[in-house]
């Protein structure tokens, strides 16, 4: 086989392979190579149970970002949120952990508010609500704490 033709064929093969690899890593694996299109804010919750790095952040059911990291601050969970630059959040933003369906995965729902100043990168969302703990609700009912 001619040298140039061989290199052409190998080039096409490597290109297709790389496209598949990039698709798997970035589209499916959610690897963030290009930063800058998002900004980070923080939120503290009593419990971030079920929330994972990579979980979706939604406003009105539309995905606007992803959870970047969860750490423990004293006895509360500090969640780092990476939100798209196009989305404006204000100081009275309300963040709550919701479940998709009864046994679906957890995600973070935001209602952006409208009053107050816009949130700057690194700011903290103050109004938060932890996820609904089904087991706790059932045990409250069973042990007769519900009047």
């Amino acid at each position: 086989m001619e040298k140039t033709k061989l290199e052409m064929v190998v080039g096409v093969f490597v290109l297709i392979g790389m496209v598949c690899l990039v698709y798997l890593s970035i589209k499916l694996g959610k690897l963030e190579i290009i930063g800058g299109a998002v900004y980070e804010v923080e939120a503290q919750f009593n419990s971030a149970s079920g929330l994972k790095p990579g979980s979706a952040i939604e406003i009105a059911g539309v995905e606007v970002g992803r959870v970047r990291g969860i750490t423990l601050i004293e006895d509360r969970a500090k969640v780092k949120l990476a939100v798209n630059n196009t989305v404006k959040l204000y100081t009275d933003t309300f963040a709550s952990i919701k479940t998709r369906g009864i046994i679906g995965e957890k995600f973070l729902a935001l209602s952006p508010g409208g009053g107050g100043d816009p949130l700057k990168p690194g700011d903290t969302i103050r109004d938060t609500e932890s996820g609904l703990d089904l087991e706790e609700l059932v045990s409250q009912y069973v042990h007769g704490k519900v009047k």
Partner: peptide
């Protein structure tokens, strides 16, 4: 469900 289940860890392990 493909998108939400696969994480970077899985892709990395495969590679």
């Amino acid at each position: 469900s493909v998108q939400s289940a696969v994480e970077w860890k899985d892709v990395y392990g495969g590679i």
